[in-house]
Simulated assay, not measured.
Amino acid sequence: MYKEILIAGEDKKTIDNLRYILNKDAYKIDCVFTNRELFKKIKNKEYDLVILEKEIDNIDGIEICKAIRDFSTVPIIVLSKCNKDMSKILALEHGADDYLVKPFNISELKARMKTIFRRMEYKTTIRPKHSLKIDNFTINFLKKIISIKDKDINFTGKEFDLFYVLSSNPGKIFTRQELLDEVWGYEHYGDVRTVDIHIRRIREKIEKTTDKTKYIETKWGEGYYFNNINLIS
């Protein structure tokens, strides 16, 4: 089945070129040029991917990512002229799945898109079709919802995947690279700092304090692990 992609930005020439190229690969493309159109589209239609330019309507793409993550877990690739590490880190920290510096090779963009699609397909095939209880947590694989004491936690897609990998292997220490490969599904484009960012965001949502963690622990010099809590299927 074809993938549906939403491309958003102000650079009409770039967007039209992307639409033409990706249409040839049998992707179904929608394009928007304002934030209002962007949010309306995402709320009214389920997309497989959003390709987002760094700035729309004079609003920074990081703020746009944050706003999208308030109501959607759709994968997002940010396109930006800024190649500073901090810009990339902030984009990833606030909900982007990937970050590509302009000008870019279209083949690289396609490769990153396919990586995201493989990850999404992989996670739907390996997960059991039921919910899993872990201490105070309930993981609903069908709805992709994690709740603690019956209160739903707003996780992004990658946060959900990362929590699942760690919690379903209690006590096992994962290196950052192993988590990057397991959750993001790629090696060449990965930045291990992405893992640290997502771990911190998960801790902020599930721990009473990030200074004294109860669930996701750090093994200094090695990686992360989930505390060996009794599992209930």
Rank of each mutant, 00 (worst) to 15 (best):
E4F: 11
R201F: 10
K151E: 06
I7Q: 08
Y215Q: 08
I148Y: 13
A67M: 12
T218K: 15
H198W: 02
T73I: 09
R201P: 12
K45C: 09
E217S: 14
N230D: 15
F117V: 04
D48G: 12
K158S: 07
I106F: 13
N136W: 12
D25N: 02
K172L: 08
I153Y: 06
K28A: 14
V195T: 02
A26C: 10
Y47K: 05
P170A: 11
R176F: 04
E55V: 15
D150V: 01
K212Q: 14
D48K: 03
F104S: 06
H198N: 14
R19T: 04
E222R: 11
L100F: 12
L231D: 04
T115M: 11
K114W: 13
M1K: 13
Y122M: 10
D16H: 05
Y20I: 11
K43A: 13
G157V: 00
K24Q: 09
F117T: 11
S167N: 07
D98M: 00
Y122A: 08
I68G: 00
K45G: 07
K214A: 07
N136K: 14
S147K: 00
K143N: 00
K114V: 10
M86F: 12
I29G: 03
F137G: 08
M120W: 04
T218Q: 13
K3T: 07
V101S: 09
R203Q: 08
T209W: 07
E46K: 09
F155T: 02
K13V: 15
Y186S: 12
L22E: 11
D152M: 02
K144E: 00
I51N: 08
R36G: 11
V192P: 05
E217V: 07
L132M: 02
T115W: 00
K123I: 02
T34P: 13
R119Q: 15
K28T: 09
